[in-house]
């Protein structure tokens, strides 16, 4: 009688409700497989009982003081907040963006005739420039991505 594979044994130990009936039936009659499953059961239990690691220093204190050093100052009493949100509130983008769009739209409408003339006049040259600059750029980007991908794979490949 062939014994169960390790895949079946692990599945049985982790969640026997998803095991096929043949596996359950085999476990009922096979002492050897029950012993092997008990080995996995012990292993899983022992891993979960391993002492959890803990930092041997005051992590929150160290982080907060580092944030203060890095001008990400958390507000002291009476001091203006410079947290991420307060920095976000003070961001000029919400004002700058609509103004920029209005200016661009205004220019486009005001100079539409001139812009069309310029655009169609330089169109072939424009296309050529796109090809000349974009293709090498994309190639370099592709090579860089590939190198990065290979490096990541190398890290994850432990065999």
């Amino acid at each position: 009688m062939p014994h169960l594979s390790d895949t079946d044994l692990q599945q049985y130990v982790l969640d026997k409700t998803v095991c096929p009936p043949s596996v359950i039936q085999h476990m009922e009659v096979c002492e050897s497989c029950r012993t092997a499953a008990a080995g996995y059961q012990w292993l899983v239990g022992e891993i979960s009982r391993q002492p959890a690691p803990a930092f041997d220093f005051d992590l929150s204190g160290a982080v907060l003081s580092r944030l203060q050093e890095q001008v990400l100052l958390l507000p002291e009493q009476g001091e203006e907040a410079t947290s991420p949100l307060s920095r976000r509130r003070r961001s000029i983008w919400p004002v700058l963006l609509p103004v920029g769009l209005v200016v661009i739209a205004g220019c486009a409408v005001g100079f539409r005739g001139y812009l069309a003339q310029v655009f169609f006049g330089i169109f072939p040259l424009f296309i050529y420039l796109i090809f000349v600059t974009a293709i090498p750029f994309l190639l370099l980007l592709g090579v860089d991505l590939y190198k990065r991908y290979k490096r990541q794979l190398k890290i994850l490949d432990f065999n």
């Binding site: 959890a52 690691p53 803990a54 930092f55 992590l59 929150s60 982080v63 907060l64 958390l74 507000p75 907040a81 410079t82 947290s83 991420p84 949100l85 307060s86």
Partner: peptide
Amino acid sequence: LRGDAGAFEEIIRSTEGLVA
């Protein structure tokens, strides 16, 4: 986000086990 350092400390304390 309102600048409460204590809240961030709370986040650190509640997650440092998992981070460790």
